[in-house]
């Protein structure tokens, strides 16, 4: 039986003195064994939604629950149960890769045995073993993305929240991450990720949430979406619905 791992109930957010809502009353839920693709044009509200889910921003209205913990009422257990990859990997640039991973492991209270095993395994997967001793500053964009992904997954979180995680990754690492996402979902967890790569979303996701101008314009299975649009590809559907919305 699938259980609800991430839910957003009527969540809204308005920035500063703006009257237009960046996110307008959105409702979503992701169950165990599911990968949800969050797609939408630039400025549609994807990153704002993810920042509210992770506690970086507080919603003006609505409730967000992660693995049974309300992010506003019980922030620490909620934060402990997800791993978040932000949209920009340019952080902690003056730390070495290994120092960053160790820092993240300390923040998420990962024991020494598990962290060493995880570091060795993920460094191998992402071909980062040789770069761990160098400062993140010296990494390429793709390497920075990999180290941030490694740090986010260090504590083996049940819920993965990934903001455009495939951007900048080389084909091998991109393939590996997609495999990891599949395996993570199959193991009874969930993945919530945003992407502009519609062919990836089409192949990988169990469900799609389409957001435009702060509102969810479709949330459901891909087949359902295609059935509504004469079996067009996701790209064609995206072009159509975002142009008409």
């Amino acid at each position: 039986m699938n259980i609800n791992m991430l839910s957003l109930i009527n969540v809204s957010k308005t920035y500063g003195g703006n009257k237009i809502k960046a996110v307008d009353s959105i409702a979503l839920e992701v169950q165990s064994r599911q990968i949800l693709g969050f797609i939408g044009p630039n400025g549609a509200g994807k990153t704002t939604t993810m920042k509210m889910i992770t506690g970086v921003l507080s919603p003006d209205e609505g409730r967000i629950s992660i693995n049974g913990h309300d992010i506003s009422a019980a922030p620490l257990p909620a934060k402990q149960s997800f791993g978040y990859v932000p949209d920009s990997p340019d952080m902690f640039l003056r730390l070495k890769g290994i120092e960053y991973l160790s820092f993240m492991a300390d923040m998420y209270q990962v024991d020494a045995g598990t962290r060493n095993e995880k570091i060795a395994q993920m460094a191998e997967t992402f071909e980062m073993t040789g770069a761990l001793g160098a400062r993140i500053q010296s990494y390429s964009h793709g390497m920075r993305q990999k180290i941030i992904i490694m740090g986010a997954l260090m504590h083996n979180p049940a819920v993965w929240i990934l903001d455009e995680p495939l951007t900048g990754l080389d084909p091998r690492s991109s393939f590996q991450l997609k495999e990891m996402m599949r395996q993570h979902a199959q193991a009874g967890n969930c993945v919530f990720f945003s992407t502009h790569m519609l062919e990836v979303a089409e192949k990988l996701c169990d469900k799609i949430a389409l957001i435009n101008k702060g509102k969810i314009i479709f949330f459901g299975e891909l087949e359902e979406l295609k059935a509504r649009h004469n079996q067009l590809s996701l790209e064609d559907i995206f072009m159509e619905v975002t142009a008409n919305a």
Binding site: I98, E99, A134, Q137
Partner: peptide, 20 residues
């Protein structure tokens, strides 16, 4: 960029000891 050498397993273990 940096010219850091590849870390040995011992070096990695030393850097990843758990702290509060």
């Amino acid at each position: 960029g940096s010219s850091a050498k590849k870390m040995t397993r011992d070096e990695i273990l030393k850097q990843t000891q758990g702290r509060s």
